[in-house]
Design a protein around this nucleic acid. Structure first.
Lengths: 133, 133
DNA sequence: GTTCGTGCAAACGGTTTGCAACAAT
DNA sequence: ATTGTTGCAAACCGTTTGCACGAAC
């Protein structure tokens, strides 16, 4: 476990007590906490910590490459009439979601996930859609 | 394009005017609309339609297999200290998000997506985690 | 004194819930 | 009469914003 304070400094983040407390939890956890879970956990040790500071800190960390924010939780839904299995491409500029045909992509190695009973597999590509020039 | 009313009946959904209007849009679109986008679109033809009815209808359609709700939009974030590329398994019972090592899975066929400049690939598995018995 | 970080409260956007009116059976 | 559907409003939850206080340089 590297020194958290050093780690923050390396990324140009001033190591305030609040940020250290957040970092100690969020950068070492195996879970994928929500902002509120981070707040709840860290408040034990830093009771004055506000939600705003948690959000500020998490966004700062993400910006500096210390963590990634993943839209993996339910909350804001996209409704898709295409019921069969298929994949998705998300245009990071426009936010557009496009279907990628199931047959175009092959995913191998699932057998290794012996602890899991897999009911759905989906590949999510992110990037830019090439515009016709 | 099959008859929408028949389609609803087949799935045991009473074809009310509101549901038909929602279905005509959401079951035939190529986009992946949010609930609000559905509401905005369908209100043109059915101005008394309320948001609640849209949500009710979309959930009902999802329950009956007419569409799928995909958590692909930003909104509720999970923060992940694992910055490098990797995949995820989501336990549908507990909601737990687990890391799947990058090297365990191989995705092939991306070359076919010539229209896209892919910056990130991620496989999302959903299912049940096998509990030790 | 200027910049940066924090905390509070309010606002915001998407979603859910409770309830009364209505339609269908 | 019972059930199912709708519409409105309020509540709710996660997130964002505005602002004032305080700390650090």
């Amino acid at each position: 476990m590297p020194n958290i304070i050093e780690l923050l400094r390396e990324r140009g983040v001033q190591p305030t007590p609040q940020r250290i407390a957040v970092a100690e939890f969020v950068l070492t956890t195996d879970t994928h906490p929500s902002a509120d879970e981070v707040w709840a956990k860290v408040r034990d040790r830093c009771p004055t910590l506000s939600r705003a500071t948690v959000y500020n800190t998490l966004h700062l960390f993400a910006e500096r490459g210390l963590l990634r924010t993943q839209p993996l939780r339910e909350g804001v839904a996209a409704f898709d009439p295409h019921v069969g299995p298929h994949h998705h491409f998300i245009d990071e500029e426009s936010g557009e979601i496009l279907d990628v045909p199931w047959d175009a992509i092959r995913v191998t190695g699932e057998e290794a996930l012996t602890d899991f009973e897999i009911r759905d597999v989906q590949v999510i590509f992110r990037g830019r859609r090439k515009r016709p020039e």
